[in-house]
Design a protein around this nucleic acid. Structure first.
Lengths: 123, 123
DNA sequence: CCGTATCCGTAACGATACTG
DNA sequence: CAGTATCGTTACGGATACGG
């Protein structure tokens, strides 16, 4: 890794294989962080989550939950009762993930006025 | 951004007005973080950036630079010389932004094996 | 209660060609 | 050197309806 000045060619392969890239993309998608935050308060069922986040469709909830589960950030526990119950909860990995994500959120909050100023200046 | 236990209905308006949301989406887009990182090594010209990041088209470079500039994360300085020279550089805001972003990158690196394990397990 | 399947519109992204 | 214009493709997200 290079040290110096210019010409550090970042390859496409580097970019796609980089473990940070997929993480960054997950952070950028519309609902993942919201859902993780809600689950930070404790386990929830599917419809519970659906109702907790206004504007979130069941389709996107399903897809987001599957993605988070594939990344190992949340767990899915199916209780074959009547009525059926499924609990979604943060894993340890998910909890630790929320730390840097919160740091980013705090940064946004702390620099809110700077961001707004820049945005109005360039218009 | 409220506070407690369950049923904190997150409204669509909250989500879109939240200063963190736009920041998170910027982090999630394909090239912003890469460009910011390269600019972390020092100022660069347009074609210099284009060559530094393989796979990045001029079109996306332009658009990403404009976006970062609108957010006040980078500065654009035009020197009307011959040949023309334009310098892109991090602003103070941009430099401070890289800190939480790097924290996220370090998290990804530190938990790389966990992420891979989860991903293979669910397949 | 917990999802899936289908359709559709928009926005992101990439390739290519051209300009001051 | 530093871009813009145009076009085509793919990914993301929402609405609706149906199934276990």
């Amino acid at each position: 890794m290079s040290t110096d000045t210019i010409t550090v060619p970042v390859t496409v392969a580097d970019h796609q294989n980089c473990p940070a890239t997929s993480v960054l993309r997950r952070v950028g998608d519309k609902w993942s962080v919201v859902i993780l935050s809600v689950l930070g308060h404790g386990a929830h069922g599917f419809n519970e989550l659906d109702r907790s986040v206004e504007g979130l469709s069941r389709r996107m909830l399903t897809r987001t939950l599957r993605g988070l589960e594939e990344d190992g950030l949340i767990s899915r526990t199916h209780h074959p009762s009547v009525p059926p119950r499924v609990d979604y909860a943060l894993t340890d990995l998910g909890r630790s993930f929320l730390e840097p994500v919160r740091a980013l959120g705090l940064w946004a909050l702390a620099h809110r006025s700077d961001l707004e100023a820049a945005h109005t200046r360039n218009r």
